[in-house]
């Protein structure tokens, strides 16, 4: 209200700062992700899934010695969170993460809000970092919800004291939770890789749907490629290759070989996706 300067009076801080505090920007981004109704719905759906699986398996008594982890869940609740992760990470989790990544850059561009962010100004590299953190948060939230719901359902509905590993040994509850945490962390890295690639795709387009289709489509195609024996040489570079190895945390001792190669692969994808997103954003006309 009092202006005495000879030029446009601006708050003093603006002379020292060229960009808003990073924490506030990230906080605003996270709040934005969490205010979107469909993201919340997705989390809710994810929470319901382990309950559904656990209940059905408990009621029906399992698939009767069928394949894989389903049989292992019966009366062995701590397997449920890992099974839930394995089931969701193939399609559901990537879908949700691609959705958030799509909103992050493509959606903002379509809304015209990307311009606003760049004009604020949020630096282009910083913008990608902020968006990546938003996606990462959704990854952690989504996996956290699945695991939490899985553990609770496992303890309350499926039951079981500790964890009977796939190798037939019995682990106490504490160690079992450690194994579940390991699976969750591993899955988070895999999903972060999906998120990074989705973000890269998101930076190239204004159509959110395209990002979803490309990301999920790529995963489906990877699945097909994996199943073709003559393309075995391609397997090591496909992000989906070791995804079923998440159940290796349930072996005793843990089967680490595939888990580690999966981590390395996901790390490469994260680097690749993030770099591509930065490269695209740095030169993009908006």
């Amino acid at each position: 209200m009092t202006g005495t300067a000879s030029r446009v009076e601006l708050p003093s801080g603006i002379r020292q700062h060229h960009s808003a505090p990073f924490g506030r920007v990230v906080g605003s981004e996270l709040g934005w992700v969490l205010r979107r109704p469909r993201n919340l719905l997705a989390l809710l759906g994810l929470a319901a899934l382990p309950v559904l699986i656990g209940t059905v398996i408990t009621i029906t008594g399992g698939p009767g010695g069928g394949s894989g982890l389903f049989a292992a869940v019966v009366g062995n609740g701590m397997v449920l969170p890992v099974l839930s992760l394995m089931l969701t990470q193939n399609l559901l989790l990537p879908l949700i993460i691609a959705m958030v990544a799509a909103d992050g850059l493509a959606g903002e561009a379509a809304n015209g809000t990307l311009r606003g962010l760049l004009l604020a100004p949020v630096g282009r590299v910083r913008l990608v970092v902020v968006k990546a953190l938003g996606v990462l948060m959704m990854v952690l939230l989504a996996i956290g919800v699945v695991v939490l719901s899985g553990v609770l359902t496992g303890l309350l509905i499926v039951g079981g004291d500790g964890l009977v590993t796939l190798s037939g040994t019995t682990l106490p509850l504490g160690e079992a939770l450690g194994r579940v945490a390991l699976a969750a962390g591993w899955c988070a890295v895999q999903m972060a890789a999906v998120g990074a690639v989705a973000l890269a795709i998101s930076s190239t387009t204004e159509h959110s749907l395209l990002v979803l289709i490309a990301t999920v489509g790529a995963l489906v195609v990877f699945g097909v490629l994996e199943a073709i024996p003559s393309l075995d040489w391609l397997k090591p570079v496909l992000i989906t290759t070791d995804w079923y190895s998440i159940s290796d945390v349930l072996s005793d001792p843990i089967r680490t070989t595939d888990l580690l190669s999966g981590l390395w692969r996901a790390g490469c994808y994260i680097l690749l996706g993030f770099s591509a997103a930065v490269a695209r954003m740095a030169t993009k006309d908006t």
Partner: peptide
């Protein structure tokens, strides 16, 4: 530039708060 760009699922105030959070000043 090129018309207003905001998020339809947020209120006007929320939209502005988001802009304001990015404002260095």
């Amino acid at each position: 530039v090129e018309g207003p760009g905001f998020h339809p699922f947020l209120s006007g105030r929320r939209n502005l708060l988001r802009c304001a959070a990015m404002e260095p000043a």
